[in-house]
């Protein structure tokens, strides 16, 4: 009985944060702030939803059903996959947005604009290494 209550509380917390992520997507002004809502809230909500699934699996396993172990382990792997891929994909989207010229709205400061472009640094390093090799040969 107490077990069921814990499961329902976990589900409630998870759904609340996932709904909040949706509201954040609608309310925030630009790509970067929307990514804030889209990564953090969905990860946290998913942790609790998957946590409740894991608890259900343990309950079945305890009562002698072997399929409970499948539920526990597979949902734990799903949780690990979400924890790994969610920040990485957010980073990829943010980087692509900044490279294609989307500036952060209402920004106080933007130090990324001062970053030397990748092409110029690559050329510099390659020419330096080539130069030092030549020197070494001589």
């Amino acid at each position: 009985m107490i077990f069921d209550i814990i499961i329902y509380v976990f589900l409630g917390i998870g759904v609340f944060f996932n709904v909040l992520a949706g509201v954040g997507l609608l309310r925030f002004p630009d790509v970067y702030t929307r990514l804030h809502a889209g990564t953090k809230c969905t990860t946290f909500g998913s942790i609790f939803i998957i946590g409740s699934v894991i608890l259900i699996g343990f309950k079945n396993w305890w009562s002698g059903d072997l399929n409970g172990s499948v539920l526990v382990i597979h949902s734990a792997f799903a949780l690990i996959a979400i924890l790994l891929t969610n920040p990485v994909s957010a980073h990829a989207i943010a980087r692509a947005a900044h490279k294609s010229g989307v500036m952060p709205a209402q920004a106080v400061i933007d130090e990324l604009q001062d970053k030397p472009t990748e092409k110029s640094t690559r050329k510099k390093t390659s020419s330096k290494t080539a130069f030092s090799k030549k020197e070494g040969e001589q």
Binding site: T33, P104, Q106, A107, V108, I109, E111, L112
Partner: peptide, 9 residues
């Protein structure tokens, strides 16, 4: 809706 965004290094 209180935000003050920016990119820092």
């Amino acid at each position: 809706g209180k935000i003050k965004p920016g990119i820092v290094k």
